[in-house]
Every structure is written in C-alpha cells, then in structure tokens.
C-alpha cells in the first residue's frame, strides 16, 4: 500500500506492507537508524518519535496511522542547524552513556518543551517517566532538559 507523510520537513511517499510499524518503516525503508527499538511493548520510550509534534512509541504504532502527518525523528530535530538546543544540553550535562535511549529521550524532551516551555520538576518527571535509561540514573537527563528549557526560552542570555 502507498503511504505519504512529511518526514523531517520533506514529503515522502512509500510502498509499505499494511502490518509495518512506524519503527520498521523509518529504520528499514528510510534508513533512519537513530530510532532505537528496545522493549517493543511501549514501556521504555527508546523508539519515541514525534507525529504532529506529539510523542508516539513507533515500535507499536502502525506506519499507516502516520499518513498525511508530520513525522519528526532525531535526524530531523535540528532543522539544518548542527545541533538543537536540547542536543547541546544533553552534551553539556553528560546526559547519556551508552546512548541507546538518547534519541527517544531527546524527542520526548522536545515534545514536553513544545507543550510546556517552563516545566516544573514535577512536570518534568511526570512527562518523562515513560522513558527508561539504564545507564545514567536519570539526574543528568533532568538537568539537561532544564538547561535546554532555559536555552530555548532565552537563547542569548543562557549562553555563557
């Protein structure tokens, strides 16, 4: 079947099987391997992808559901810039180790900050609690999202 959607700002049209998940289509057909698959049961958040700016678990989201929508992956996050402020903040705070959860974590942070540019600590934890990280113990990730929030609110003032 045909599937048309906007992928990282560019329209795409693909031939897919009806049973293919968004994760399969993005990884195998579009070769966007920044999307990582781990638990396959919507628990870990590593496959988090934005569809119309909302986070979905691509491992269990049928690709067909994305028809006509805007899909954003880690590869499209910075919109042509070298790094998005969230990516820069993750670097600055050492908010990753093995990096396997990182693309999903960053996209979840992006969705959060789009919805709520000034999250409280409670908001942060409530929003991100569905993304697992086995390496960091989470604190560096929270610091990175807080730093990203301030960078995005006041891009000039927040720079050293």
């Amino acid at each position: 079947m045909k599937l048309a959607f906007v992928l990282n700002g560019k329209p795409v049209e693909l031939d897919i099987e009806p049973q293919e998940t968004l994760a399969e289509v993005l990884r195998n057909r579009c070769h966007l391997t920044g999307l990582k698959i781990s638990c396959e049961v919507q628990v870990c958040g590593s496959c988090t992808t934005l569809v119309d700016d909302l986070p979905v678990s691509a491992c269990t989201y049928l690709a067909y559901e994305a028809r006509g929508r805007r899909v954003t992956t880690i590869e499209g996050l910075s919109e042509g810039q070298p790094l998005h402020p969230i990516q820069q903040a993750f670097l600055d705070e050492f908010a990753f180790q093995c990096g396997f959860c990182t693309p999903g974590m960053i996209l979840m942070a992006k969705a959060l900050l789009l919805e709520n540019p000034n999250p409280t600590d409670f908001d942060l934890v409530a929003y991100t609690d569905g993304n697992l990280c086995r390496c960091t113990g989470y604190r560096p990730i929270l610091k990175a999202i807080r730093r990203a929030a301030s960078l995005m609110r006041e891009p000039e003032a927040a720079r050293p």
Partner: peptide
C-alpha cells in the same frame, strides 16, 4: 577535566552506529 565526550555528537544526533544498525 570533564571534557566533551568523544562519542557525544554521534549519540545525541542519532548517528552513532550500533551493531543493530
């Protein structure tokens, strides 16, 4: 010194290659 990680940019941009990729 806590310098920038060697694998940092690759990991935050999704370009880091794992065996599964």
């Amino acid at each position: 010194h806590s310098v920038a990680r060697e694998d940092g940019v690759a990991k935050v941009t999704g370009r880091a290659v794992y065996a599964s990729d």
